[in-house]
């Protein structure tokens, strides 16, 4: 990573941190967008705490979906779960045609308003990309590598943990990255069902017709997503370099 390519990243990160910790410093930029003396900076809660609860729910949901999706992906690629492999492939295809908002909306009447429906939607929808990439990562391990591991006398368990998973790691990480980015967006919409998050700023702006709120909420969410996407991309490249294979398969 050269200095030149990381400079914009660092600048963007500093800008984001400065904005959520001391938004008043930036009120001059948003004032022209307001009318009738409306506040230029979101004043119904701290941007920092909204950002943190936004990140918290995305992190917890991604953690949960990663664990389940990995376990399921490993299961259907073992001999004992092979029967479920073709079906799970088509289920992932079908599942991804469900818009995340539909999952969120259907969860609300079942579990009520708040964090719960948002968590369920993030968790369920987050499963799909991770599971899909776990499958393609594990089934993409070259048969030669597996044969070599078998020839070295490795047990199936050792092969899984020392050969297959490390080789599949970059692809799995790419799935996790996709899942995190989708979750960041869905968590923003979660604010319509009263989950605490950055969507609140945008929704408050839409309700009070305050374009300044809408714009700053949009910018914070966008910057957050771009930075996280970028950071996870770096993690993938590190993992790919370690596993000694180019990243062109990972999305």
């Amino acid at each position: 990573m050269s200095l030149r390519s990381s400079a914009p990243r660092v600048a963007a990160l500093l800008l984001l941190v400065a904005f959520v910790t001391a938004p008043q410093l930036f009120s001059f930029a948003f004032e022209p967008l307001t009318a009738n003396n409306a506040p230029a900076i979101y004043n119904q809660g701290s941007l920092l705490s909204l950002t943190l609860s936004h990140l918290r729910i995305v992190f917890l949901a991604t953690l949960a979906s990663t664990m389940l999706a990995l376990a399921l992906g490993i299961f259907v690629t073992r001999p004992s779960g092979h029967e479920f492999l073709p079906l799970s492939r088509s289920l992932v295809n079908i599942g991804q045609t469900f818009p995340p908002i539909a999952v969120l909306a259907i969860a609300v009447p079942l579990v009520g308003f708040g964090e719960k429906p948002t968590f369920i939607a993030l968790f369920l929808y987050g499963l799909l990309p991770i599971f899909e990439n776990t499958l393609s990562g594990l089934t993409g391990v070259s048969p030669q590598a597996l044969d070599a591991a078998k020839g070295m006398g490795m047990s199936p368990r050792q092969r899984l943990f020392q050969v297959e998973l490390p080789l599949a790691l970059p692809v799995i990480l790419a799935g996790i990255r996709l899942s995190v980015i989708i979750s960041l967006g869905t968590a923003t919409i979660g604010s319509t069902v009263a989950a605490k998050g950055l969507g609140e700023v945008i929704i408050a702006g839409l309700q009070s017709n305050n374009v300044a709120f809408v714009l700053q909420g949009g910018l914070v969410v966008a910057l957050l997503a771009v930075l996280i996407h970028d950071g996870l991309g770096i993690a993938e490249r590190v993992a790919a370099r370690r596993s000694g294979r180019p990243l062109d398969e990972a999305r």
Binding site: T186, I202, L215, G218, V221, A222, V226
Partner: peptide
Amino acid sequence: SIVQTVPSIALFGILIAPLG
């Protein structure tokens, strides 16, 4: 790909200001 990363409602929000 940067555009694709921005969540939908955030992009709507960012577009509302210039369109308005």
